[in-house]
Design a protein around this nucleic acid. Structure first.
Length: 486
RNA sequence: GGCCCCAUCGUCUAAUGGUUAGGACAGCGGGUUUUCAAUCCGUUAACGGGAGUUCAAUUCUCCCUGGGGCUGCCA
């Protein structure tokens, strides 16, 4: 199956776009087909430099590489590959012109000379009279001679499609099922703008036909435009593709996911440190379900399980809490050595000593099951690279039944117990044994020993366990920090 | 306003013409535990309303209500 994702380079990749791309990509992969990336740069005024490249990069971060169309080459530069190019719509202008002319000749479209001002006034008037704002076909009344004359004089104009108003348009969407639209409610949409660029409507029909797309995946917001596209396909004598309109992603108030209420750019989530595994897993589960209770999916597993008939019709509220849970799940699934190498640059940036730390892997392992985002790593490991300031107030802890007066005595017990462990024997096992016997002989509670030790070593209220930290800190440093408090 | 779409716990969702309406996240309670996480166990919580069809509707039909999308020489 040939599927496609056609972003317009007007900004960053929207989460809804990412999900639509994911679905299209999954369908292509599932059927051994081709996933094409096309750039819809038909609105010159809204184009943002670098946006196309950025979108392709984000897609590639997500693992959704195009098989055809616009992609990154081995050097990371934007390039095009495929038999149906060019894949930038701005490079296909002559094609659109040709088909627009064909539509005009066939009586399916007509030139319109109305100015923006006139259209504006017309719409205001229609609104005032509580009518649906629609083009009033003024320019359809023009005589052939007049049209010819104005065209030849080079007067600015657009090409509008001529909607067959008496007809009904029916279609069965892959997700929404049977749909019917009445012709008289469909506007004579502009097909070619006066700057010679096509609008989305024409470009979509021409490109997806010429590029031989089997399936069009796009957001539900396009549902009301569907009849226009079907009319165009028919007028051009082409067979329309299958369409799968994907339900919208929603804000908490159930309006269309928007910048005002959420971070909507995929890039925002990359910056925050989300794993692509987590984001894609989350997006896949919004509007789709596997029909089983499985919650965690890798991309290959999604390819295996995905099908359009389990995509449902209503919009889905974007709920960060579940995303964060998935993020934690995927964080913990990273192989320990990979985890360590991913956080190493971040930690090194703050603590250069980490670069040559022989215990880095073990230290990293200590935080892997408690971390949610990579950028938290330097802070979570800081006490391995800088001596914390430890106050007696931190060690004295009513919950552990430790008063300030107890602190010197307790530290002394810990100090003595750990002194007895030989340098060469220093390990979590020996430390545990030494402290447990100290706990037994002192009559103190476990927490009365372990909380002060941990606090003295890390300077923190929360951290990995006392045994683990002491073992990875080494005897010398452990003893030093114990004495520093006392 | 017009057209189109949608409707199960707070959120993501499953299932069914007859079920104790299931799972996940969050919440709450508990276990484990030196802390925080992680983890385990338990638990609160939903079929928007009204007709109709039927022996039986959450499920099928219609209406209402509610929500959303579109209504550009944007995509």
């Amino acid at each position: 199956m040939r599927t496609r994702f056609p972003p317009s380079p007007t900004g960053f990749l929207h989460l809804g776009g990412l999900r639509t791309a994911l679905f299209a990509w999954l369908l292509a992969k599932k059927t051994g087909g081709t996933f094409t990336l096309r750039i819809e740069d038909t609105d010159q005024s809204r184009e943002v430099p670098g946006a196309a490249e950025n979108i392709v990069r984000t897609l590639s971060w997500a693992g959704l590489m195009p098989d055809e169309g616009v992609m990154l080459d081995t050097k990371g530069v934007l390039t095009e590959r495929g038999a149906y190019g060019p894949y930038h719509q701005s490079k296909r202008l002559d094609l659109y012109r040709t088909y627009a002319d064909q539509l005009v000749k066939g009586g399916h479209a007509y030139p319109c000379f109305c100015t923006a001002e006139r259209l504006d006034a017309m719409r205001k008037d229609q609104e005032k009279r509580k009518q649906a704002p629609m083009y009033d076909r003024t320019c359809l009344e023009l005589t052939k001679e007049e049209v010819k004359k104005r065209l030849e004089s080079g007067e600015k104009h657009v090409i509008r499609m001529k909607v067959p108003r008496e007809e009904e348009v029916s279609y069965t969407d892959e997700i929404y099922g049977p749909l019917t639209f009445k012709g008289h409610t469909i506007d004579d949409q502009v097909l070619m703008k006066s700057d010679g660029f096509p609008t989305y409507h024409l470009a979509h029909v021409v490109d997806d036909h010429l590029m031989k797309m089997d399936m069009v995946n796009r957001g539900e917001e396009w549902l009301s435009s569907l009849p226009k596209h079907l009319i165009l396909f028919k007028a051009l004598g082409w067979k329309p593709p299958r369409y799968a309109h994907v339900p919208l992603l929603l804000n908490k108030d159930r309006s269309k996911l928007s910048k005002r209420q959420n971070d909507v750019a995929a890039e925002d989530y990359i910056k925050k440190g989300y794993l692509s595994e987590a984001l894609l897993n989350f997006l896949a589960l919004l509007g789709w379900n596997p029909g089983t209770t499985q919650e965690l999916f890798t991309l290959p597993e999604l390819i295996e399980s995905f099908s359009l008939d389990r995509v449902h019709k209503s919009g889905a509220v974007f709920d960060l809490e579940k995303l964060d849970w998935l993020q934690g799940q995927w964080m913990r699934k990273i192989p320990p050595n990979e985890f360590a190498s991913r956080i190493k640059p971040l930690v090194t940036e703050k603590f250069p000593a980490a670069a040559t730390d022989p215990k880095f892997l073990e230290r990293a392992a200590l935080i892997q099951e408690r971390i949610t985002f990579f950028p938290e790593a330097p802070d979570m490991l800081s006490y391995f690279y800088e001596t914390p300031t430890v106050s007696v107030d931190l060690i004295a802890n009513p919950k552990q039944k430790i008063t300030k007066d107890d602190v010197p005595k307790i530290l002394k017990i810990i100090h003595e117990a750990l002194s007895a462990v030989a340098d060469v024997d220093w390990s979590q096992t020996t430390i545990t044994a030494a402290l447990e016997s100290a706990i037994a002989t002192s009559g103190l509670k476990k927490g009365q020993i372990l909380w002060p030790l941990r606090a003295a070593l890390t300077g923190r209220e929360y951290s990995p366990g006392a045994y683990e930290v002491a073992a990875l800190l080494g005897k010398e440093e452990t003893m030093k920090r114990l004495s520093a408090v006392a």
